[in-house]
Design a protein around this nucleic acid. Sequence first.
RNA 1: GACCCCUUCGUCUAGAGGUUAGGACACCACUCUUUCACAGUGGAGACACGAGUUCAAUUCUCGUAGGGGUCGCCA
Length: 470
Amino acid sequence: MTVITRFAPSPTGFLHIGGARTALFNWLYARHNKGKFLLRVEDTDRKRSTSEAVQAIFDGLSWLGLEHDGAAVMQSEGAERHAALAHQLLDAGKAYHCWCTPEELSEMREKAKAEGRSMRYDGRWRERDPGEAPKGVAPVIRFKAPLDGETVIDDLVQGPVRTANEQLDDMILLRSDGTPTYMLSVVVDDHDMQVSHAIRGDDHLTNAARQTQLFLALGWKVPRYAHIPLIHGSDGAKLSKRHGALAVGAYAEMGILAEAMCNYLLRLGWSHGDDEIISREQATEWFDLASVGRSPARFDMDKLLNLNGHYIRHAEDSRLLADIKPHLAKFLGHDADPAAFPRLKSLLPSLKPRANSLVELAEKSLFLFHQRPLAMDKKAAKLIHAGSQAIIAKLLIELEDAEPWSIEGLEALIRSFADSQSLKVGMVAQPLRAILTGTTASPGIFEVLFSLGREESLNRLRDHTGEVPS
RNA sequence: GACCCCUUCGUCUAGAGGUUAGGACACCACUCUUUCACAGUGGAGACACGAGUUCAAUUCUCGUAGGGGUCGCCA
């Protein structure tokens, strides 16, 4: 049997990390089993679905690198078939009309709640004569669910989950306007798309029982279910905008690399011994549902950032150079000067271990792009005084004829200069750093000098020794 | 409220009927060092509680507590 999984988001919002992880798991499971990963947009609720959200889902998936097989299915396009099946069930006596108004139903729920009973539909039209139907009320079609016995789902993550059928009420299949509900549509589409494994959030666990009943009533094979625990916020509560229920695009804006995001999401709920850094290839080879945990996990930005730092350190320079541009522009307020890019290119190896995100990488690269004279932050300014000015002035003269202008050459020159002045290297390097970068923290000073180049370095130094640049 | 699911360091997790309960992030210290990082070494830090089964339970069973989910003409 070929494995067919699907990711079935509803386009009523953006693709957040919970959905992203669900998509990842489905993708991985399909790829691991050399099966297919399908995408279905559950836009049954036309009122709340937006094309922007559909686009955001596509964009999010493509950023994560989770390409689906075949064309994406828009669930609303199957509405006619879904409705036809509802009528088929009606004809077969497995469904019935219900003339309850929304008001009547909410009254029913209120009453049940007040009396401490469960708030299910009480099946009042199940056996009632349609002749008693009120005039002017369009009926819905409800599923005639079994009244006794139990429905068992052998969940691939949760294990066997038994639900007494009396806990499940007669769900609506077709709305009064004749459109199918989600409950009907998923079942029909999962069947039509030959989905073999439905991997989705825990919040669908109770739905699985109802859907199983529907599959059975239709005489179809029930797919295997795998309900993965939800991701919670850092405070243990449901994910909110405050801590992670952001569109995956927001993470891209925060300078998170897609592979770091995937690695992080993968380890949230799934494990392979003590492995932490797991490549896409490795994940595809190792992924299984048996190793998916059953308890909800909290979202931890620190760990994501740490992982991101690892991927940045190991990323190709050329790729980083391209990815960093928008972030640089954001800081600068305009596009970064292309003429200064060679500086960034040469300093990148030293910058990489110092950043956990592209934003941080851009921020730490900023001094390479700043126009002279550079502004200094407070700590840096403190390093500049008469004593250090004198040291820099002397060093400046040596730097003018430094040969070669290479990292090694500069290191040798500065070390012997410090030696000749009976100074510790730090006494020279720190003021130098303050002047060259405007800050007290930067990559090694020899690298900085080298990347800036002789001319720019000397000019920045002259800005501080009072000498007019030539 | 009813039903369902969950519970190992602060967080993500490994683990097995007998282990010094392992790793990662975060935290602290040290090493490296021109600053900041990276890297390395070390440290502190957990089996929710109560019964039961067993020679032995953190691991199996049942309760309790806590957390989460579902109960829409939403998906």
